[in-house]
Amino acid sequence: MAAETRTDETDFGEVSRLKDRVFESVTLAAALFGIVTLAVLLVYVTVDAVGWLDWQFLTSPPHPLAEEAGIFPALVGSIVLMVLIALVTFPLGVGAAIYLEEYASDGRLTRFIQLNIANLAGVPSVVYGLLGLGLFVQLLSFGYGTLLVAAFTVSLLILPIVIIAAQEAIRSVPDSLRQASYGMGATKRQTIRNVVLPRSLPGIMTGTILALGRAIGETAPLIMIGVPTTVFGVPNGLFAKFSAMPMQIYTWSSYPDTAFQYGVVSAGVVTLLVVLLSINSIAILIRNKYQTERS
């Protein structure tokens, strides 16, 4: 009863693909929407920065006159801050990841810690600013807007990201390597030090550096802990006041003067993005080197 009634035995006909084609175009347009918008904005800001982003800008302190304004103290402040954050988050993040991946049993406490880390990664950065203000500035009296407070505050902010990245790297170490180490009579500590960490280090480094990229752009926590809007010199100690590039950009963007709005700030934004791009390139280089070594 199936075949006999058919009339178009060899002509299969064609199913309309109109919806399919329209839908594919719509989804492709959606996928490109954000990228294209960002690309256009980046072109604008780069064009605006031409003529403003020069050696004088990179090496001068801020100045009320747009022509003489520079980003030097903020640039140095950001880099010093980033190094401090790396020193705090790397050992803590790797330590936590080692515990969760190598030691912890899959119990309730572990799952609670895991859920908590995931949730911390979603807490707004301005709330971390309040934590820094209440804990480091008020309670521990490390001083308003000092380098140390900023380093601690932003470290807590990116720590969940570092832990999650380090966990993924450690998890990707094949179990057979651990077994081989234990089989030769190594202790857990020796296995971690000689097998797990060397093997996962590139992955951990990549994740940490990408997290530092996020740290260097953070602004809201710095405002909350009282980082000053304008600083003329580079920090000379952990308890020194300092400035950072995003703080400087925020300050400048509120100047009504168009020379600032479309010139100095553009130069600052491009500087920040170039530093960010360099950081991420380093992370990608490490990852690529590591991938080719493995294959």
Binding site: Y99, F112, I113, N119, L130
Partner: peptide, 26 residues
């Protein structure tokens, strides 16, 4: 071995302390 385990555990515990500190501060 136990000392190492304890150090790593404290690192992991820091995330819970952070949440606690946020809640208490606020």
């Amino acid at each position: 071995e136990f000392a190492y385990r304890a150090v790593f555990f404290v690192c992991a515990l820091l995330s819970i302390l952070t949440t606690l500190a946020i809640v208490l501060t606020l």
